[in-house]
Structure formats: structure tokens, C-alpha cells
């Protein structure tokens, strides 16, 4: 485990709704270190997704700040659109839905993340192919998303999130649309990403079946952290080759 990749300090997010103020997040502080798989659980409306938006630099906090790899990048009033380049290098996102670009093949979806980062088309495609092979999708590289199963789509989304080798992976209920077997496979993949790539992986989940894989689990309620559990004997699945050479 390395130093803090993500440091969210006192994050608060208030929304004005008519005459009242909704406190979606209320002074949450959370760190995630390299090599750590951090789980966030809690009922709907507890602030899990809002936390992820703030940590992922998609929403600025109303109060508090976000530091990634020692650099304070978000605070109240921050222009997050200007952080697009930073986000590209620093954060990989995985959501409940894979959100793949439907008109690109699996390989192109992954390669796109690299090409956006000015990697030439050929090496980008080669790296995307390596990643997908390592994730067990070598036979699906030229298939469009519509021809992939839900689990396969989610693994392509994970490959895309990994493409730029970001130190931080944020996932919002990535197994919600999958059956238990495939859900477990995806969670094991996150565990491996943390272990092999030494990335900080923060996963919002409702799924209690894979909690044994997490280093720490935070419980959210009413926009606050109401519980923290550390797992000393977490399960470490057999590592797969998740470290192809990024061009």
C-alpha cells in the first residue's frame, strides 16, 4: 500500500430545493491509498453517488476540498471543465451501465481513451487489445457493445478505465446489473487492479456478496460516514496480467 491517492476533506454538497436546502453530503472526509480497494455502502440517498461525483471532479463541493496525488484539484466554485485533462490522466470511471460508445467496437472503445490522450492509433489499438486479452475478452475485440453480454460490457468499461493507467479508479455500483457470478468476477477484477497496479479503487456498492474483497468499507447515511470497517483477512483472488506496457 502506498500514500493517499485520493484525499477528500470535509466534502459537503448542498442543493437548494424550493425553500429548503438538501444536504446530499455533509462534511465527509475519506482517503484512499494506492493498492487499496475501498467500498462505500449505504442506502439510497445516503450520499454515496454524490461523493463519487465530487471525488471524480464531476461536481465541485459546496465546502471542503479534493486532493489527488497531493494536488488540491477541487474546492467550492472550481471550474471542473478545465480539469478534463487532469481527470483523463488521474481517474478511471466505471458505472452501473457500461456506457460504451455504441458505434465503436470493444477494442475501439478502449483505444479511444488512449487516442484522446494523443497516443497514436496503432499503439493505442495494440495496447487496447492487450488489455482486453488480459481481461478475457480477446475474442470480443472487434464486436460492438450490442453484441456483448452485460458482464463483457462491464469488463470493456473497466479496460477503458484502465487504459490511461490512472492512479484512481472510481466505480458506481458496477455490479448492479450483473448476476452474482459475473458480479463477483468484476469485483475480483477491481481487487486485482488495486493489487497489481497499485491503484486506489473506490467502489460504491449495494452488493453484500463481495465485501470480503475490500480493504476498508465505509457506510454512508444521510450524507455522512456513519461506520468504517477494516478487513484484515480480505480475499486475494489469483492475479491476472493487468500490467501490459502502456504506449
Amino acid at each position: 500500500m502506498t500514500g493517499a491517492i485520493l484525499d477528500v476533506h470535509g466534502a459537503t454538497r448542498h442543493y437548494v430545493s424550493g425553500d429548503s436546502i438538501v444536504k446530499a453530503l455533509d462534511g465527509v472526509s475519506l482517503e484512499a491509498h494506492g493498492g487499496e480497494l475501498v467500498g462505500i455502502v449505504g442506502p439510497s440517498g445516503s450520499g454515496k453517488s454524490t461523493f463519487l461525483l465530487i471525488a471524480g471532479l464531476l461536481e465541485p463541493p459546496t465546502a471542503g476540498d479534493v486532493t489527488i496525488r497531493g494536488q488540491k484539484v477541487s474546492e467550492p466554485g472550481a471550474n471542473l471543465d478545465r480539469l478534463r485533462d487532469f481527470r483523463r490522466h488521474a481517474i478511471g470511471f466505471v458505472f452501473q451501465k457500461a456506457n460504451l460508445i455504441p458505434f465503436l467496437t470493444a477494442g475501439e472503445n478502449v483505444a479511444l481513451a488512449l487516442e484522446i490522450d494523443d497516443v497514436a492509433a496503432r499503439p493505442a489499438r495494440a495496447y487496447a487489445t492487450d488489455l482486453l486479452i488480459n481481461l478475457g475478452l480477446g475474442h470480443r475485440i472487434d464486436n460492438p457493445p450490442a453484441r456483448l453480454s452485460g458482464g463483457e460490457q462491464q469488463r470493456v468499461a473497466i479496460a477503458r478505465a484502465l487504459a490511461n493507467d490512472p492512479p484512481l479508479i472510481l466505480a458506481d455500483e458496477p455490479t448492479a446489473a450483473l448476476d452474482s457470478h459475473r458480479g463477483r468476477q468484476v469485483m475480483e477484477l477491481f481487487r486485482q487492479i488495486a493489487d497489481v497496479r497499485q491503484a486506489a479503487v473506490v467502489v460504491v456498492t449495494h452488493d453484500p456478496r463481495s465485501l470480503d474483497l475490500f480493504d476498508r468499507i465505509y457506510e454512508f447515511a444521510d450524507g455522512r460516514i456513519v461506520g468504517e470497517e477494516r478487513s484484515a483477512d480480505k480475499v486475494r483472488p489469483e492475479a491476472v496480467g493487468l500490467l501490459p506496457q502502456r504506449p
Binding site: L58, R84, D85, F93, N99, F103, L112, I116, D117
Partner: peptide, 16 residues
Amino acid sequence: LHQIAMLKLIGARNSI
């Protein structure tokens, strides 16, 4: 628009 939002999420520049 959904794909465009996704492109922005993964860091695509406006020029793309």
C-alpha cells in the same frame, strides 16, 4: 448527447 457526455467524462477535448 449521452455519448458526448461519456467522451467528456473520459477526458475528450472539445475539439474531438
